[in-house]
Design a protein around this nucleic acid. Structure first.
Length: 214
DNA sequence: AACTCGGGGCA
DNA sequence: TGCCCAGAGTT
């Protein structure tokens, strides 16, 4: 790891030590469902929905007793809820048929579940199973690019570059640090570079000015 | 690569 | 009011 990368990690840790997702869950299945729901939606909305949903429908076997319309009604309030209802129902059916109702621990199997892409799969691997994985969402991708820890728009490219650059035992922390930094400071629009604790290390903020580096 | 789904947050 | 998301699937 080069010196600049080390300095960036130290600065991130200093600011965001202990940062985690605000998503509430008690087991891998609940995290899987909560993460599917969280796309384009805030954690707060998701928590409100899952708290109510998991009271009566805490397993795939229970969720598949709902019709698509009934499930959609219960998760209304998060974005894209009709698609998610459809996907969650199919995912629960597949969990029951193929995996005896147990969430699998392999990325390939997770990604075959409807509604589960690479980001969601990695979140489940890292947070529910403690398996090293680096989930790249829009925040992580944007911040990593601005700091030039990675280059390129495709999340999987960013993921692979970060995995090469950063020691494995830091991947999950790095994910949360970059997300928090992306939300609070390194925002998509009008990033708060002047008050950014990393601005001296950031190639996108030179000469006291922010410039997106393509 | 571009488009769609969709309500909430925020200027 | 309008614009932007803690993405994934389809075209």
């Amino acid at each position: 790891m080069d010196k600049r990368t080390t300095q960036i990690l130290l600065a991130l840790e200093e600011c965001y030590r202990g940062a985690t997702s605000a998503l509430e869950y008690r087991n891998p299945f609940e995290l899987l469902i909560a993460t599917i729901l969280s796309a384009q939606t805030t954690d707060k909305q998701v928590n409100n929905i899952t708290r109510e949903l998991f009271k009566k429908y805490s397993t795939p076997q229970k969720i598949v007793t709902l019709t698509e319309e009934q499930l959609a009604e219960k998760i209304k309030g998060c974005g894209l809820y009709r698609n998610k209802a459809k996907n969650i129902l199919k995912t629960c059916q597949k969990l029951i048929e193929d995996y005896n109702g147990i969430v699998p621990r392999e990325r390939e199997k997770l990604m075959q579940l409807p509604g589960v892409g690479r980001k969601t799969a990695n979140v489940v691997l890292a947070n529910a199973f403690g398996i090293p994985a680096l989930a790249v969402d829009t925040h992580v991708g944007r911040v990593a690019n601005r700091l030039k820890l990675a280059q390129g728009k495709k999340p999987q490219d960013v993921e692979e570059q970060l995995m090469t650059l950063i020691p494995q035992n830091k991947w999950n922390e790095l994910h949360h640090w970059l997300i928090w930094h992306g939300r609070k400071i390194c925002k998509a629009q009008k990033p708060l570079c002047a008050e950014c604790p990393l601005n001296k290390l950031c190639p996108s903020y030179e000469g006291g000015k922010f410039h997106e580096t393509p």
